[in-house]
Nucleic acid binder design. Structure first.
Lengths: 306, 306
DNA sequence: AACATGACATTAGAGTTGCTAATAGTGGTA
DNA sequence: TACCACTATTAGCAACTCTAATGTCATGTT
């Protein structure tokens, strides 16, 4: 039972003729005749009264015709809805990012991206790190942006940048005026740390242990913003990615000092579902994210002079 | 695009599995896989996310699933309605009869017919003779009962009986007391006739002319009932089929006398559309009509004693 | 981390279906 | 009655759809 046959039947009834119905569907009269007969056989009902000219549907045939029209109309609507949905879905980039990179990175890339893809839609969600991974795995986000990304069977990673880690202290702290601080100077220092289950915490712990420095962890938080607030009330010092304290450094609300630990960085990366073909819009969005921070807006055909 | 594929797709979504969907539709997993792929190709949309287990419909796939369910439900309803309509139509006999045979003949045949086909429905319409033919030609009636039936390309005739024609007069008429009347005695008589375009009029005219009798036509009507009324007010005599004046004869409201014209009869017959296969119910109804008037009710297995 | 498992995709070949062209049959009409 | 227009039928060919076998992949386990 196929929809083309139902369409043919509707045309036959509407045009009062099998031949005209056949022509309307660009098939031979024979094919139309056979198709209608088969339809009647499948339904076990006489739909057309062929013993009169012009052809007329029987009472049942007329009822079935009305039903068919509704059916075909419904199908065409479903098809149209599908196409519209596809337009929308394929033009949307769903981004899941951790708080500390979300808005900052987005604001830098949004304008060039939107001018390249004017009808694209970007949806950004800021989440806890493991929620970012979850969102990508569950196909609730097309791309995830997070620190310490780890590839897995279902997740691919594209490295984005490595953020140097710096010592952050209250402006009144004894080390606040220093140009730089050696790791050993943190021995016994009150320390505001990340939660133990975060990769950044493990990276910092490992680096300090390697330097044989022990700090006194006085607080633990799961995000940068709260740690900064704790330092702001002089609860202790911390080690944070430099970009996350850029504004506070400029405003002198927090003191920011390099540490002599070049290997201690926070890698930031993009993740997406492995093996899943990216839509053109998503691929282009990722390319945009990979542009360095100082790239001229407008792409490679920039305004460099000879 | 066929409905079985849509059904398959719905089952696949519902069961979260192509193999289970295939099983539900008693086809191989391969066939189901190909069918779904073809569906996606025809719609140019990714309906299923196969990169996860268990299988999940995409956002578009879910919307299409809902639409499909409604569509299939609508089709099943149409199919069911069709079956119900067929039951009803095939169990119905539409009868068109002229006034003078309609109710009288029906009442005699209805009871045995209905006991043989308890769920059958009989619809009787009493019409003018040419409307009876028209109704049968236009397929508004399955059978027609009328006098002087004529076969044609689209009409078949089954003779039913020949009704003897009798002289009918007012009880006070000079011929009213006669046992029988010779045609010649009608010479110059005031006569209430049928309309000129009716076959019965032509038959009567022909018979009188053959006897070289000329009557004075004072009125013309298109039906028996009105002629009887005219005679009732002593407007003249008429020649009518005997069965149509049976009641008046018994009640002595009209005088009924045989005429010596054995060839002058009104043939009554059944007509139906030629070449049109009769439904069993219609065929059985015709058989019932052809039973003689004195047949025992209850059919051939009657209550005759040894 | 390799392996086992269950599920989907792919492929090739067999069987069926559906189409076209030609022809026969039928209702309406001059 | 013959003709016209339309539908049914037939036969043969092309296209499609199905199945069985095999390949590939995602997931859970040891």
């Amino acid at each position: 039972m196929n929809l083309e046959t139902l369409q043919l039947y509707c045309d036959v009834v509407r045009l009062r003729s099998i031949s005209r119905g056949a022509a309307a569907n660009t098939v031979s009269q024979s094919a139309a005749s056979q198709a209608i007969q088969q339809l009647e056989a499948e339904l076990d009902a006489a739909l057309l009264d062929r013993s009169r000219r012009p052809l007329m549907p029987t009472e049942q045939g007329r009822a079935f015709y009305e039903a068919c029209r509704a059916l075909l109309q419904g199908f065409e609507k479903a098809r149209a809805d599908l196409a519209a949905s596809r337009e929308r879905v394929e033009g949307t980039v769903r981004v899941a990012a951790i708080y500390s990179v979300g808005l900052h990175d987005m604001s830098r890339h949004m304008q060039p991206f939107m001018s390249a893809y004017p009808q694209a839609r970007v949806r950004l969600e800021c989440l806890h790190p493991h929620k970012v991974v979850e969102a990508v795995i569950e196909d609730e986000a097309d791309v995830g942006i997070l620190s310490y990304p780890t590839a897995s069977r279902s997740i691919s990673v594209l490295p984005l940048r490595s953020e140097p880690m710096v010592l952050v202290a209250h402006p009144s702290h004894r080390l606040a005026r220093r140009r730089s601080v050696a790791p050993s100077e943190l021995q016994g220092e009150k320390f505001v740390a990340f939660d133990r289950d975060l990769p950044i915490r493990r990276a910092i712990d490992r680096a300090l242990k390697q330097q044989e420095v022990a700090v006194e962890v006085v607080m633990e938080f799961d995000n940068v913003e709260t740690i900064k607030q704790a330092i702001g009330i002089n609860s202790g010092v911390s080690i944070l990615p430099r970009p996350t304290v850029l504004k506070e450094s400029e405003m002198r609300t927090l003191a920011v000092m390099p540490l002599g630990l070049p290997n201690l960085v926070r890698p930031v990366g993009i993740i997406h579902r492995r093996g899943r073909r990216l839509t053109p819009v998503v691929a282009r969005f990722i390319e945009q994210l990979q542009q360095p921070a100082d790239a001229a807006p407008g792409g490679p055909a920039g305004m460099s002079r000879p």
